[in-house]
Nucleic acid binder design. Structure first.
Lengths: 150, 150
DNA sequence: CAGAATCGTGTGCATTATTCACGTTTTTCG
DNA sequence: CGAAAAACGTGAATAATGCACACGATTCTG
């Protein structure tokens, strides 16, 4: 328990985070992944599909909170995903105001293809890593993200 | 050197990355930081200012490459930053096509305030971390980001 | 060395994304 | 019960983004 951490470390950590986030935000990365997966999917929609898969069943407002955008934006994108048959929405049984979204079978197939493609790309990029280092990064990053979201 | 890493680890790592990136991308975070810093700055412009500070002197195209957006978008935002007197642009001496951007003194003051504010917030969030753990995360994340950027 | 191809930058235009204001339905709670 | 709040959606206004293109600077190439 520290009141003040080493500024050097904090700045270095921040720099690494910015580099990582910029890299992940790159539209070209998504294009590459979609190409590797070999599926036809609008790259604007696929991050949302991934999040419905991960956090679903989930409503519009909660998902909007999570991604930091207005709920109306998410509402429209979810409508598109629904029209494409990738997600499914039905009123929640416990709260009929929320229309819970889940991935359909067709959506699940796409998610599977995307996950497999991402794993192939990751293995190509991370050839020099040991499983031990990766797992350490995973654990530390999980803790960090949780603290950030708290 | 592994051909295939443990899928569990990779998926867990990916999940943590998504959580982190979503959290960082949240506009509310930037608002919070700007408020803590006590400066009047459009939250859309401040990520760009931070990157000019970090990578500058830097031209439009290189910065656009780095952030993954179209170069015309960056060009317009840089114009705004210049009008606000936060950055300065002058033709490069080695290549007169590029107009190298650097932060002005006024821009530097803002960056300093932002960095100080971020550090205060970070120390509040990371009370339970030791410097050792933080530095380990920093080192692993730096390596990861570098590998990702190839 | 001259012409062609490439690169960095910026502008006009069209498209798309995002927000804002508002209304509806459902739930919560005093 | 009844008021307040929450989840969701629609329409209109606004902002952001990308594309086509132009122009000067630079590099490539025969």
């Amino acid at each position: 328990m520290n009141n003040a951490h080493d500024s050097e470390i904090l700045r270095g950590l921040h720099a690494a985070i910015i580099d990582l986030v910029d890299e992940i935000n790159r539209p070209r990365r998504d294009d590459r992944l979609i190409e590797e997966a070999g599926i036809p999917l609008d790259r604007a929609l696929f991050p949302l599909l991934a999040r419905v898969w991960r956090y679903g069943p989930i409503g519009v407002v909660e998902l909007a909170d999570r991604t930091g955008r207005d709920h109306t934006t998410i509402s429209r994108q979810m409508t598109k995903l629904e029209e494409l048959g990738l997600i499914e929405r039905k009123p929640s049984m416990t709260d009929r105001r929320v229309r819970e979204a889940t991935v359909t079978e067709k959506g699940q197939e796409m998610v599977d293809l995307l996950n497999a493609a991402r794993e192939r790309l990751a293995n190509r990029i991370l050839v020099d890593w040991t499983d031990e280092d990766l797992d350490q990064l995973r654990a530390l990053l999980r803790r960090f993200a949780d603290d950030l979201m708290r």
